[in-house]
Write a protein that binds this DNA or RNA. Structure first.
Length: 636
RNA sequence: GCCCACGUAGCUCAGUAGGUAGAGCACUUCCUUGGUAAGGAAGAGGUUCACCGGUUCGAUCCCGGUCGUGGGCUCCA
């Protein structure tokens, strides 16, 4: 009897001869797919439609409209791109080319970097390959044979990858004359690729290590249909309109100047006001939670940075200066001063936990290539605190901080992700301390039932950390809040407290920020709200505007009343038509327009036009103020 | 720091087989006093096209370098 397999499909169990392919089953079951099914899933692992099946189990087809299917489509498109590149530039060596969140890329080692013109060339060659409907063929061979195959082709990067693969058998995929080492699965043939576009050109280090040679990375994206691609490009255009660098200029919040220097932010009146509002909010929230304000100096003696380990581990990021022949380090972090506050007297266990808070301005020498608007700068102010507590209090303190962060993120309506970062290569402290700290952080996350990912080797040099990341308009992640455990600095600075048994013991230190850097947070915040800040945060909350100059005296009266009530109000009495004034106020995204004409003047009212609405409502000033206060109160 | 691209008026951008620059908006003045997304006219505005050097009779334009910006990589709040 021929061996057979039992396949569960559409809620039925069907028996097929072994070696049947998913494509056969697709046809057999009359599934209408109009080439939407790109692969299949058998027993939880993805297979090609052409893979002969030798196992029984549930089979599901993977549609190109599913996340997994889209990933397969994009991955296959990256192979097609590599094929096009090799056909056009035979001396290019291939490396790796995965699907990523918004598309795919492929890294090439090329003697001459690609130009934008090359991209067009590659794209048109890809279109030919797609038109050719070349089948993707899966080839399984022993690892050694594959090594020989790629050696022959001088594909040294592939050989290097194969050298590190453990299994004895590997799979290759070939379409046309192009063969790549690959796990698969892939779409059945290149004709399945419908809409794609090469998007950007970049440099990238081989295996992400800056000691390795730099490769040429070509990014692209692919979609099930041209409409989907068009939609994606449209969304991208819209996202660019939210860019905080663009809005920062348009709303006159801040600037950076060549004359001043890169990565140094100049806050204009409205931006400075926004910052002030956020900082006030922060101070209140910290006081509520038992933090004490402290303030440290901007420069501290170099000896202190040597003692802390910053000099050894963080020197390249620091600025130094010399005063009266003594070397000082300009602070890149606030922890040293906070420890000095702790050390200023003998501490009792009764005082702990101590929570020292500072809106601390720090300077870090960031590499020139990483600076980015407000999101990556060289001088920034952290909402920084250092908590000193007993080891027993550690868990509760961490839980308190995570809750703090959650509360704040909710107020702003942010989605965020949490990551637990463990010990990096360059670090100080004992393994035992690192384990204790890492366990404490993880336990707090688990106690709270928070979702998190583990980031191996990404901790600070003095301890592991929990990072909270927010996304900008283009969905790039930025670290904002961070909670870092530290057993090392208390040791190095010999911090102690007297315990109930009269013994001197070592406190634990937690470094933490909630918003992170105010600059970065505001950058992300601008993009989050697309510049339309909620009332409580708007630098200008209302603008009073008149129809004609006749109403100016009355308008001034209204402005005074609003100001007296604490409304941040602007006034537009210019000799312009009302349509023009409204247009400008809309552009500035001011929450309330207060419009005054003869009608309002005569009835002693004001006409309110709310941001986002096209109509006005007439009311007495008092009525407006009531509504206004309510909205500020709700932070809506 | 590395790779690629870019750098013209406050902003958005045009431009010149290489012959010393233009538009719109914004700004100033005047006219207009107009009820919900741009009323009209005139004017001023670039140490001459980021900076430095080279090629050339002549460079904003070609070449090299520096600085800055953007997109990535590495790194990070």
């Amino acid at each position: 009897m021929k061996p057979s397999v039992e396949i569960h499909i559409n809620g039925e169990k069907k028996v097929y001869p072994a070696g049947v392919t998913p494509r056969d089953i697709l046809r057999d079951n009359g599934i209408e797919d109009s080439r939407d099914m790109v692969a299949a899933d058998l027993n939880g692992h993805a297979v090609d439609l052409s893979t002969p099946l030798t196992e029984s189990g549930p089979l599901n087809f993977i549609s190109v409209r599913s996340a997994k299917g889209l990933e397969i489509l994009r991955h296959s498109t990256s192979h097609v791109m590599a094929q096009a590149v090799q056909e056009l530039f035979p001396d290019v060596k291939i490396t790796i080319g995965p699907a990523v969140e918004e598309g795919f890329y492929y890294d090439f080692d090329t003697p001459r970097p690609f130009t934008p013109e090359d991209l067009e060339l590659i794209e048109s060659r890809m279109r030919e390959i797609v038109k050719g409907e070349l089948p993707f063929r899966r080839i399984v061979m022993p690892r050694n044979e594959a090594i020989g195959f790629f050696q022959e082709k001088s594909e040294t990067y592939k050989v290097e990858l194969l050298d590190q693969i453990e299994s004895e058998e590997v799979s290759l995929y070939a379409q046309g004359g192009f063969t790549d080492l690959c796990r698969g699965p892939h779409i059945p043939d290149t004709g399945y690729i419908r809409a794609f576009k090469l998007t950007k050109l970049a440099g990238a280090y081989w295996r992400g290590d800056e000691r390795n040679p730099m490769l040429q990375r070509v990014y692209g994206t692919a979609f099930p249909s041209h409409e989907d691609l068009k939609h994606y490009l449209h969304v991208l255009e819209e996202a660019k309109k939210r860019d905080h660098r663009k809005l920062g200029r348009e709303l006159d919040l801040f600037s950076v100047s060549d004359d001043v220097g890169p990565g140094l932010v100049i806050w204009h009146p409205k931006g400075a006001l926004l910052r002030h509002l956020i900082e006030e909010f922060e101070r209140r929230e910290h006081l509520k939670r038992g933090y004490q304000f402290v303030i440290g100096p901007q420069i501290l003696k170099k000896d202190l940075w040597e003692r802390s380990g910053h000099f050894d581990n963080y020197r390249e990021q620091m600025y130094f200066t010399t005063v009266d022949g003594v070397d000082y380090g300009i602070k890149p972090m606030n922890c040293l001063a906070h420890m000095q506050v702790y050390k200023s007297k003998i501490r009792s266990y009764r005082e702990l936990p101590l929570r020292f808070f500072e809106l601390g301005t720090v300077l870090r020498h960031e590499k020139s290539g990483v600076l980015h608007g407000l999101l990556r700068v060289r001088q920034f102010t952290q909402d920084d605190a250092h908590i000193l507590c007993t080891p027993e209090q550690l868990n509760d303190e961490i839980i308190g901080i995570v809750k703090f962060v959650r509360d704040v993120m909710e107020i702003f309506g942010f989605d965020y992700t949490m990551e637990l970062s463990t010990r990096p290569e360059k670090s100080i402290g004992t393994d035992e301390d690192w384990d204790r700290a890492t366990t404490a952080l993880e336990k707090a996350l688990q106690d709270l039932g928070a979702a998190y990912e583990i980031n191996e080797g990404d901790g600070a040099f003095y301890g592991p950390k929990i990072d909270i990341k927010l996304k900008d308009a283009l969905s790039r992640s930025w670290q904002c809040a961070t909670i870092q455990c530290d057993f090392t600095l208390p040791e190095r600075f010999d911090l102690t407290y007297v315990d109930s048994d009269g013994e001197r013991k070592r406190p634990v230190m937690i470094h933490r920020v909630v918003l992170g850097a105010i600059e970065r947070f505001l950058g992300v915040l601008v993009e989050h709200y697309a510049g339309a800040f909620p009332l409580w945060l708007s630098p200008a909350q209302a603008v009073v505007m008149t129809i004609t100059e006749r109403q100016n005296p009355y308008a001034r009266e209204v402005v005074e009343r609003l100001k007296a009530h604490g409304v941040r109000v602007e006034v537009d009495l210019r000799n312009e038509k009302i349509g023009f004034k409204i247009r400008e106020a809309r552009g500035q995204k001011i929450p309330y327009m207060v419009i005054i004409g003869d009608k309002e003047m005569e009835s002693g009212t004001i006409a309110i036009r709310k941001r986002g609405e096209d109509s006005t409502a007439g009311m007495p000033v008092e009525t407006f103020l009531k509504q206004f206060d309510q909205e500020v109160e709700n932070r809506s």
